[in-house]
Every structure is written in C-alpha cells, then in structure tokens.
Design a protein around this nucleic acid. Structure first.
Lengths: 194, 194
DNA sequence: ATTATGTTTAACATTTTTGTTAAACAACAA
DNA sequence: TTGTTGTTTAACAAAAATGTTAAACATAAT
C-alpha cells in the first residue's frame, strides 16, 4: 500500500509539503495528510509527536529549501545582470513547482512574527548594495533599492499565488497560464533592467 | 461595555473584518472574534446561525467592497493614463487599510474555487482592450495585455500582503514602511507607463 | 525458535471548537 | 402591572481535531 522506499516519515513530510505548497490547502488536518499519504493518522504522532511539530518542521524545511536555492544565487560572483537573470529563473521555477510555499511562509510569518536571522539580513543588505551600484552605473532606473527589490519579488511571486484566481479571471487554461508564467521570466527582466 | 451604536450584529462583522483583513488572522475562531468584539460568543450564532455563514457573509462583503471601490474606476470615462493613476491610488489606499483582505480573497478562492461572475469578466476584458489600444498608441511597452494586468496587480498587492516580512527583512519601522508604500503609487505608475 | 527492535494499527481519551437551549434581562406598550 | 419583543447570557450538547496507549505485526539477529 504505502510506498516504503524512503520510509514512512519522509512520505508523510513529502505529502504534507505537497498538500500545503502545491495544492495550497494550508489548513489541512492531520487526518487529511494521513489519508493523502495512505497511512494511519497515528503515525503522524509516532514520528512527529504533535501536529505543531510536524508543521513547524515542514515550514522550517520550506525556508531551508528556499534558502538553499536562492542564497547561492545571491552570493554568486556574477555580474548583476547575470545574477538577476539567474535569480528570476531559479525563483520562478521553484514558485511554479510550489506555488503556495511562498504564501505559506508569508502567512506563517504573519502568525508567528518569526525573527529573521542576521545572516539572511546580511545577504539582503549586500544585494541592496549591488542594486545601488547598478543604479549609479545607470543600468537600472534610480529609486530606493528596497523598492527595486520589492518590485522584483512582487512580479515573480504574486502571479503564482494567484494562479487560480487569474486563470478564472482571464479565461485561460492550465497550459496557457503555464506559458504566461514562463514568458514572464524574460518579461520581468526587461521591465526592471534597461 | 459593548459599543451598541451600530448594533451588535454590525459590531461583530466589523470586528471579524478587522481581525481577518487588518490583522491578518485568517483563521481566528468564533471565540477570538467574540472576545475581540467584547460580546458573548453565543451572539455569533444568534445573529449568523453558524460560523460558516458569518465567514461567508464577511467574505461576500469583502468582495463587494472591493468591487464598489474598483469597478467605478474601471468603468470611468477617463483617458487611460488618468484611469491608471486613479486605479493605483484607489487600490493601494484600500490595500493599506486592509492589507490582508486581498490575501483572504485569494486563499478563499483557492479553497472554494468560486466562479467569477460574467459581469466581472466583462470588466476585465474591456480593461484588457484599453491596455491593448494604449500599446498600439505606443504609450506602454508592448506585451500580452494580461501580463500588463498581472504586473500591475502584483506591484500593488504583494508588498502589502508581505508587510510584516518586509519590515523585518529590510529593517524598516512602521512609519518608514508606510512611506515606502505611499511612494510606490508614483513609482508603479512610472514603471509601467512611459 | 526466540528475542529484540522498530513499525503499524485500533481503541480510547482529551482538548478544542462549534452549536443549542432555556432562562435572565432590558425597554417599551398596553 | 403585565405582557411583548428583542437581546444577552450561562449551561449544556455535539462535533471535530488531536493525542495516548497497548497490543499486533514484521523483520532481522541471536
């Protein structure tokens, strides 16, 4: 019945991630997750003690996966232009796979007002400096570098957390919306980098 | 104790809206709402029969309020440039007051995959045509009009649903973030209209 | 075959959240 | 006063979600 390859513990976590981050059911119950994983609900307690711990663990891994993918790009020794292109590609590929992960992190953050680790803030600060330097060079429109950063992430993240609404609003099917999202990579770059 | 001016029923709805849309506690319990309103929880059942009905009613009003504010702008007899400026001002003022209303509508939409009324789709179609015409005039960068629309709403909405996260990430206080958001009105316009 | 170990299950217990009822209360009219 | 209406409350009931326990099960080591 259950796929035992990677072990039940991993299966449960993967299922929880799928339900939360791919299907967007951010408030699924332990029973929902157990059913989707094809295991007895008790196993969630056996492996994770409590629902809160499972949720926290999954959320932490979500943040870590996001960092694991983005940090190397932020810290890469690349020209700003290349870094920006890379960032857009990497972020959007992730967000297309887990359209609700971003939203989950945001809502969780609102709920708990978690503290952002200094190391993360340092990365952001360095990126803001790079943006500033690029503005001085005249490569991008002059503005508060924070605004540039906010624009960038807004353009990347929002269309993916509103996928469902947009498909309905603009009358496009899955394939067409996927194409729109793929096209956005180039489009976003052209919008913010001149 | 309770402010009885507008009646308890209205007080409960207003409190629910505040908790959901201003404070972002999208999954507050009936007890949470009753406490915040300073009334007995039973009153929520007395006035609304069930939690679901209260939630549905509040969600419906949220959509109506959003429409009441946005539709007149969409349908106004204005030059595209003026319409766009107006739209940005109106939408962002609303979103600053109820930063989570947008997110609530999105998550609710994901959960229930509600059908969007034809009348709403018509408004969107007309707006897309206006965008198209403006591109032909060379007033805005050429692209799929849907992409233009997606960009616009992304730039307006996302920074407000990530307020909490951004303040922490960029080390800015409430006042500074408010200024950033106010400045965005002009900035967004300049970004998408040349 | 037996023991030991980790895994899974069913049955039960607890907690949290929601819904119902009947009675108390206040304001007002007859 | 009494009755009427709508509002509020406390006590209770029910449902939903979560957590615990002990026993069954499988597998491999002794």
């Amino acid at each position: 019945m259950a796929v035992k390859d990677k072990g039940t513990e991993q299966l449960i976590k993967d299922t929880a991630k799928r339900i939360f981050f791919s299907e967007g059911k951010l408030h699924a119950t332990t029973q929902d997750i157990a059913d989707a994983a094809g295991v007895n609900r008790t196993l969630l307690n056996y492996y994770f003690r409590s629902r809160d711990i499972l949720f926290e663990q999954v959320a932490t891994e979500a943040r870590q996966e996001m960092s694991a993918v983005l940090d190397p790009v932020f810290e890469a020794e690349l020209e700003f232009k290349e870094k920006l292109e890379k960032l857009i590609t990497v972020f959007m590929d992730q967000a297309m796979k887990f359209p609700y992960r971003e939203m989950y992190v945001v809502t969780e953050f609102n709920r708990t007002s978690r503290v952002i680790p200094e190391e993360k803030k340092t990365i952001v600060k360095r990126f803001l400096k790079e943006i500033s330097a690029e503005m001085d060079k005249g490569k991008i429109r002059k503005m508060d570098p924070k605004q540039f950063c906010i624009n960038l992430f807004a353009l990347m993240a929002y269309p993916l957390i509103t996928t469902c609404l947009n498909k309905s609003l603009y009358n496009v099917n899955d394939a067409e919306y996927l194409k729109l999202m793929k096209d956005r990579k180039k489009l976003i770059f052209e919008m913010i980098y001149q």
